[in-house]
Design a protein around this nucleic acid. Structure first.
Lengths: 145, 145
DNA sequence: CAATAAATTTACGCTTACGTCATCACCGGA
DNA sequence: TCCGGTGATGACGTAAGCGTAAATTTATTG
């Protein structure tokens, strides 16, 4: 059986992004699908790279940083020097991410306190926080139309 | 005793930001210091608002979100609505950060695999990974000069 | 009081990550 | 053969959050 292929809009819909974004990632060297004529055709490897790109974005990385990260996977491992370099860069990234992990946890703790305080304040006014939340979410939705 | 007052540069230096940033926050309605003639003069309340702004930024909120939060104490909407809105925005951010936490951990695991595989590959070549690492780090350092 | 230093306003610039046309080509179906 | 849909390629637009002059006024200091 042939491997599964995807069109640009199929991928876009799957990940809830636009074809424009996918093309943009390509101009930045993050993707490089085959072409059938001029039409882009994505295989599972391209799809996997896209997944990495989107995860990097959620982590708050720039596309340039993401490119460096992805390039680690594809790094040349034939020369000892390259392997050592890979270890070096990998360790650096690990250190950075460990710091980020710490930051995120601290921030999360702080946000949970804020949320709890807001809920308390609403209850002190005789309101059910969840209901109040649902109502304002609804209101903002309506206003947006 | 009169309350303590601050110039724009004093505040800027204290919080390690630029006067330009502080003026920018003002144009966005986040601060509204008194004026002595044309010169901005900040009191402790203005300073407290600035602290809130910077905290909000640390937590990853937009200046617009931060404005909503700060206006909690001014209220043009009802206070309950503001509180509910705060909860809403806070929860959204919490969800994002929880996802980030997950992503960071996944990425860390992957990087550790890459690092370990590189180390193995080096050992398979009869090299000590730590030495190889130290050597290439040294080499890159020298090249940088 | 002259020379700096500090502040103000105005306004254009910059970067990242796309959004949004406009124009054109191509492919399959009625 | 004409049409609708999909895709491609420019190219300009946009939003956030300031940076960076430039031109001027205001304060401070020797």
């Amino acid at each position: 059986m042939n491997e599964k292929l995807y069109s640009i809009t199929e991928l876009a819909e799957e990940f809830d992004i636009t074809p424009r974004a996918i093309r943009f990632y390509e101009t930045k060297g993050l993707l490089s699908p085959q072409r059938a004529g001029a039409t882009r055709v994505y295989n599972y490897r391209d799809r996997a790279r896209l997944v990495l790109v989107l995860r990097g974005k959620r982590l708050g990385f720039s596309l340039e940083d993401i490119k460096e990260y992805i390039d680690l996977y594809d790094a040349d491992r034939t020369r000892s020097e390259q392997l050592a370099h890979l270890m070096l860069v990998g360790r650096k990234r690990i250190t950075e991410l460990e710091q980020q992990l710490d930051d995120v946890q601290t921030t999360l703790a702080e946000l949970r306190v804020i949320e709890a305080e807001a809920a308390d304040a609403l209850r002190a006014r005789g309101l059910d926080p969840e209901r109040a939340l649902a109502e304002i979410a609804q209101k903002l939705l309506v206003e947006a139309i």
